[in-house]
Design a protein around this nucleic acid. Structure first.
Lengths: 155, 155
DNA sequence: TATTGTTATACTCTATAACTATA
DNA sequence: TATAGTTATAGAGTATAACAATA
């Protein structure tokens, strides 16, 4: 990898013939645009199921860690626990998961997917794989692996 | 770069001893977390100036393209033009930029930074550079260049 | 005292739709 | 007709604070 970027067309972007010297070199801004692209793509794939990427993340964590308390889920996903309450209300209304009051610590709710939730998640998982394959098309399999490694220190 | 990830500790993360097999391999999710980290860092640096990363982007585009119409700015930054109106109200109130009705096309406003706006932007630019250097510390200069290249197809 | 789930509030952002003035 | 700027609204998401039940 070159140390400099002189070989790149820096200072102008696809957005017309605007000058964007600073922003086009901003890592954070590139991350934001890439993330927005990714979420828009995933959101479109999930749309028939009326599920957001954030809801998918919640369903997935609960599926992989049955009985988890709300505060743990919020922590793991960096969602405010106040926000998670509303998300879980939605998911519980749709009978995708249930809150079960814990007998060992009566402050907490153990979260479990319902059969319906597991069934939906299996379908969402396929769509997520399609999304990942789409990224692979764009930057290659090695690129995708490299990207995950590069992003790791920023998690 | 290896084709597989067997050498990586996949399936568990720093978040306690939770299983996160799927999410930890999701490129989109990694992008989201990295972007959130980046914006939180930049936001903290900008805090003394009460400027958000989004506002910084607007100031920067206008600075680099004086006289630009609102719709062009919205387009370039993928901000809804309805949203941009409110952002510009804020920035104009603070006398960081001005809207000037164009004489050639009286529908449009030409945007220009004020001296105060340019002065502030110069300070923000230094903070943005510190932010970029922070990323460089985390993933190295080559890593940063590689990251920008990897993200390019997703812009 | 501390934590869990909850309710509430303010602000930002996304996504639309509709209106007016201009072209 | 189409475009630019504006206003309005609904729904996410972020960031806090406070409260009751429980530890």
């Amino acid at each position: 990898m070159g140390e400099h970027l002189e070989d790149e067309e820096v200072g102008s972007t696809a957005a017309g013939d605007l000058k964007l010297t600073v922003l086009s070199q901003a890592t954070g801004y590139a991350l934001r645009r890439a993330q927005m692209w990714s979420f828009r793509d995933l959101k479109a794939r999930f749309k028939p199921h009326d599920i957001s990427p954030a809801q998918y993340a919640v369903l997935d964590v609960v599926a992989e860690n049955p009985g988890l308390a709300q505060a743990r889920v919020a922590e793991a996903l960096s969602i405010e626990r106040a926000r998670l309450v509303l998300m879980l209300d939605r998911l519980e209304e749709r009978q995708l998961l249930v809150r079960v009051r814990s007998t060992s610590d009566r402050r907490t709710h153990e979260l479990h997917l319902t059969d319906k939730g597991r069934e939906l998640l299996a379908q969402l998982y396929k769509l997520w794989e399609e999304h990942e394959r789409k990224i692979e098309e764009l930057i290659g399999r090695d690129g995708q692996a490299a990207l995950l490694k590069l992003l790791a220190p920023m998690q």
